[in-house]
Every structure is written in structure tokens, then in C-alpha cells.
Simulated assay, not measured.
Amino acid sequence: MTRGRASDPSPRQLRLLIVLAEELHFGRAAQRLFISQPVLSRQIRALEETLGLTLVERSTRRVELTAAGEDLLPHARAMVEAADELRRAAEAAGRAGALSARLVLGAYVTALPVIRTIVEYAHERHPGLEVELRDVGFVDQTQALLEGWADAVLCFGPVPPGIQAMELAAEPRIVCLPAGHPLAARDRVTLADLAGLPVIGLAESLPRAWRDYWAADPRPDGSAVRYTDHGATTIESIVAAVGLGQGISFTAGAAGELFPRPGIRYLEVADLSPAGALLTWAASRRDEPGLVALRGVVREVCATPAVARLGARWWDTPARPSAGP
């Protein structure tokens, strides 16, 4: 090809060249790019004319990059990556400039590393978004959302009507037993093993579906659960009652590490399905910009391999994701 004066190629043309270099086949490359083969061929020729170089050797049997094409390919990738980074930065700047909101994020344990990471990352992503943390117990998590004194809550399901949720991780449900109980010497138990043992009663203000779920009531054989008359409202009060030998309680796997206490033992329950660790919000407020932004931040912070593994320490996120989008 006759060398002409080189001008600036477009990022789109460079993207086409990169895909063609990966496939070395016009048909497959065009299919990946969702364009026709003639359009791809014309665009590659236009790029060659712009640069004044032959980049691709074509034949009826094969496609190969020329030496010039091979030399320019790393630079093409760098230019495409730079264009992508520019676009992402522009989008982030637009989001930051458009968003100004203050949200209250509730949780059982606001000191968890993952929650601190969410707050820091939200500020990086959206400088106009202020996130305040507030301790919210399991008794008032629904009320906090429906009455508006928390905008979002990190908790465990299930959630009642009027509340929407995004699952962050799956946590095993475990049982908390008095350390002196004969079953406490085991590594795991079944619901049949726990039959007849009283479950620490929770506050009546909790939704019935939530109380039933966390007591495994009814049991697989259809039998009803026997409750104590505690009306517990905090994890601490539940653990204390169990330690005194007054009953048992079911909780999420994280409690075994977050609430260790003398006189109790946490055991795996082989036939209990896992519970979802959730970010929740009032359905009526779903599309508010601050909540949309918060969901995006939480999704990115928790999108790690650890979160996908059952029982992993999803709450112990050690570091923030990259500050780039």
C-alpha cells in the first residue's frame, strides 16, 4: 500500500482491528462485533488508508496481521483502553455532578469492615452522596424503612411486602446451643436432633413470617416449635438466654464469629437452607437517585469471589475496589 500522511484513526476502527487480530477471520470477527463482514472489511481498509499501512494480509484461506499490524496492535489496545477510561471518567463526573443526597444506612453491626468499605467507596464514587451509619436491630429493621428513619438496611431476610431487597451473599443458618448440652459436642446437627428443644421467643412486633423462618417453624415433619416467653429484641439478649440454658436459637453463620460468648456453642444445621444477606429499601422509594447510587456501590463492593461462596466471610471485605469505574 502506498504510504500517505498518517492521521488519527478512530477508536471504533481500532476496536475492529483488535477483534480481527483475535479471531483472524473476518466472518467470526464480524459476528462478534454485530456488523456485516463487508462493513468490517471496509472499515479495516479505511484504517489502513488513514495510517498509510497495510495491516492485514487477506487470502481466500486465512487472515494474518502484517509485521506493521503486529507492531501497531499494542498501541491500538492502549488507545482503546484510554478512550474507555475517558468515557468512564466522564460518566463518573456526570454522576458526581448530578447527585447530591444524604442517606441513612442501617445495620445490626455498623462496624463491620464491609460496611465501612461501602461508605468510603460511596464517597469516592459519588462525592455528593453522604452516607450516615445507624445501628438497626432485627426488631425495627422493617419499621425503619417503612417509616423513613433509615433509607436502606443491611440485614437478613425474609422481607415483608413493601420492602425490596438485593442479595449480597448466602449465609448458612446455624443453631446456638448451651455449651453444656449433649448436642454441643457434635460438629453438626439436624432439625430432627433439635426436636422438642424450646426456641428463644422473639418480640411479637416482628413479622410472623420472619419469626417462623428463624425458628424453622414448622419443622419438616410438620410439628410446631415450642417457644420461650422471652420476647427477645436483640442478639445479645438471645445469646444470654441460650447461655443460661433457657433455650436454643437459630442465627446466620456470621454470628458464630461476630458474637462468640462463654457458655454457648454454634453448630451447623445440616438440613437448613441458607439465608440471604440483603440490602433492603422501601419499594416506594426504589428509583430515588441516592438509593440507585447506593445499590450500585454495594453491588461493586460485594462483587468478589468470596461473596459467591456459601458461608464465606463476605462481611469482612479487606479493601476497597479500584477507585476507577
Rank of each mutant, 00 (worst) to 15 (best):
L99M: 03
A240L: 10
R299T: 10
E22N: 13
E64N: 09
V239E: 06
V80H: 03
I163C: 08
A275H: 04
A283W: 10
T280S: 14
G137T: 13
L194I: 04
A232I: 03
I118P: 01
R173F: 00
S322H: 09
G263P: 08
G256D: 09
W314K: 08
V292L: 11
R295K: 14
D135H: 08
A232D: 14
D71F: 06
L133A: 03
A215V: 03
L103Q: 04
P9Q: 11
A303E: 12
G128K: 11
E48N: 00
E257C: 03
A270W: 01
G52F: 04
A169Y: 11
A252V: 01
L145S: 07
T228M: 03
V56L: 05
T60C: 01
G222I: 07
A252S: 10
S237D: 15
I200N: 01
L105V: 04
A67Q: 14
R208T: 10
T50R: 15
L16N: 00
I18C: 01
E22W: 01
R299K: 09
L194T: 01
A203I: 06
R42M: 05
E288Q: 13
A122T: 02
Y108N: 11
V175W: 00
P160C: 10
L55W: 02
P262I: 09
R188K: 11
A150Q: 11
E85A: 13
I18T: 02
I264F: 01
D151C: 10
M79R: 15
E81R: 15
V131I: 11
A6I: 02
W315D: 14
V159S: 07
